[in-house]
Amino acid sequence: MDFLGILATSLTSAIGPVAAIYALAIIGLNMHFGYTGLLNFGQVGFMLVGAYGVGISVGTFGLPLSVGVGAGILCGLLLALLLGIPTLRLRADYLAICTIAVAEGLRFVYRAPFARDFTGGVFGRQNLSEGFRELNPFPPGRYGFGDITFSSPHLWTMVVTWSLVLVASLVMWSLIHSPWGRVIKGLREDEDAVRSLGKNVFAYKLQSLAVGGVFGALAGVMIALHQASITPDQFRPQVTFYLWAMLLLGGAGRVLGPVIGSVVMWFLLTFTDEMMRAMDQMGWLPFVSGGELGAVRHALVGLILVLLIIYRPQGLVGDRREMLVNVK
């Protein structure tokens, strides 16, 4: 077994573009859940509309890349408003059901045959990132050290996405350490108390949903640019659950939680995946084989979620003291 190779692959995926994209989406989720206490189980919906903002503007109408990115972000904002205005007045458990339903509903609509002229139906849209790759300043070749190397387009996506993650984290830090963030954190503890002090609770929740939604949409935009092609079925509810697992692993309500969660989780996932694959090739796995490995990994994410909540609800960088306080 090429153990070092597996380690290198895992590290590569932990710092690779996909981990960065996920970190970006988790930052949005952290805004919703970690700071505001909103139970958003439909973050993938924001990624979907973000990705399709690019997909439809660039892929369907042939507009320039900048328009696509703008459209993606705008779509995220719009979805936040459309989703938030009816549902944010409801109790948390209703919001949870609504968000997951809306995200799935959006996927049904985007993949439906009648929308094919715009969205490409189940086939999605291809060739979306030419404009993005033209901007790539790295000459072709491979970059990195040792076994951890990236091709120039991947390096370019990584640099852009991790920069976005950095900017998003700074924005989050600034927001949270401001009076605005204080109100938001107050909401997480007790809405009524905040309302009794003269704050417009609904407006703040909507703002929080919009900010987090824009980060989610931005992650979707980066998916479109990174893969150059998107299909509706990659935006399944499981993506949201992965985001939740990563957020809780890193630590909800911490600025660095999303980044750490994404990096660590991708390392673990790739590592177990590669280990299982290697063991499978050597015939060490009696029950599962080939195609079932993916399922084993999904089951593993479920197990991680359960164990995290039970044994370490504060995540890797959370504050144990805060978690011990009995909220509500």
Binding site: W244, F287, V288, H298, A299, G302, L303, L305
Partner: peptide
């Protein structure tokens, strides 16, 4: 253990993923 309701939701999602994919491994797709 007085685990907060929100966290129970998340545990149930975890259980759902675990159950669903265990069934997938056992029975195939």
């Amino acid at each position: 253990r007085n685990v907060v309701m929100i966290q129970l939701f998340i545990v149930s999602i975890g259980v759902a993923l675990l159950l669903r994919h265990t069934l997938l491994v056992l029975f195939g797709g």
